[in-house]
């Protein structure tokens, strides 16, 4: 049973594969983003989530499961999670899951977490604050609601003692210290220590057949098609466009004083200052 002194804390970390923002390139002629050939990497905030979980593994011997939803190639972020020290990786992959908005994603992740709980205890779910390709910061709270667990967002430091967690939340100009009973969902935006690097030996181990990596599909988590992927999504993208296309450079000429006056007038016009 969870909570008994001899049973380890069981933590699930949600990780997402995203396009590498450091490798984005601009088309020099059109100023638009070139997405082809951009390598896929682990979402930076999720790396903080893993570090938080692995610090609990260091101090309390927590068991850490990394969970991701994505195409088969997303197994790479789970391999990397194993290389950092996670004990198990589970990839949710199914054609039905594609095109999900945050509602459908949190439903799918929630079902997977329920399956994890049918296999053993689960005390804590940790997510990164937000994904660098979406910036919505919605999955953490939505998964918490799916599970019916309390949530603590914007965490920069986390301690677990018995059946409670203590978290330091970083808000603008403010740090809040809160106490929350387990089980709970936490989203992190920083860690006391920089996220650890993957270990080379564990990395190669994670690529071998014996690695503790599984793939679950819609049937495995009993997720109906109507509630996952694009079909289960409550929002629809109807249009995408490049904001750069609209950027028209306006030259402000004259003496320094004239230039500065003209600029301030423009900025005031746009209510920027």
């Amino acid at each position: 049973m969870p909570g008994q002194p001899d049973s380890p804390l069981c933590v699930a970390v949600l990780v997402k594969q995203v396009p590498d923002s450091a490798e984005i390139k601009m088309d020099p002629r059109t100023g638009t983003l070139i997405r082809e050939g951009v390598p896929a990497v682990m979402n930076p905030d999720d790396r903080l989530g893993l570090e938080t979980a692995l610090a609990l593994k260091d101090s309390l011997g927590a068991l850490v499961t990394a969970l991701s939803m994505g195409p088969i190639q997303a197994v790479d972020v789970l391999s990397e999670a194993l290389a950092m020290g996670a004990d198990r990786g589970v990839l949710l992959s199914d054609r039905n899951f594609a095109g999900a908005d945050t509602w459908a994603t949190s439903f799918t992740l929630g079902r997977a977490l329920e399956r994890l709980m049918s296999q053993g205890p689960l005390d804590l779910v940790i997510c990164g604050r937000q994904a660098s390709d979406g910036d919505t910061a919605q999955i953490g709270p939505q998964v918490a609601e799916h599970l019916g667990w309390p949530q603590v967002t914007y965490v920069e430091r986390l301690e677990v003692e018995g059946r409670e967690l203590r978290a330091w939340r970083r808000l603008p100009g403010l740090v809040q210290k809160v106490l929350c009973p387990l089980p709970a969902v936490v989203t992190v935006l920083a860690t006391p220590q920089a996220p650890r690097w993957p270990l080379v030996d564990r990395l190669l181990w994670a690529c071998r057949e014996a690695a503790p990596l599984e793939v679950w599909d819609a049937a495995d988590i009993e997720a109906p098609a109507a509630r996952t992927g694009l079909k289960g999504s409550l929002t629809r993208v109807v249009k995408t466009f490049s904001p750069k296309g609209q950027r028209v450079t306006q030259w402000l000429e004259g003496t320094a004083a004239e230039q500065s006056q003209a600029l301030l007038a423009e900025l005031r016009g746009h209510k920027l200052i």
Binding site: V41, W197, V200, A206, E209, E214, V215
Partner: peptide, 21 residues
Amino acid sequence: MAPRSDPQKLLRQVMARFVRE
């Protein structure tokens, strides 16, 4: 068998990030 990552690609990616950061 469940899919596995390509160790060459993954090692290259990790080392490239190590170099960058």
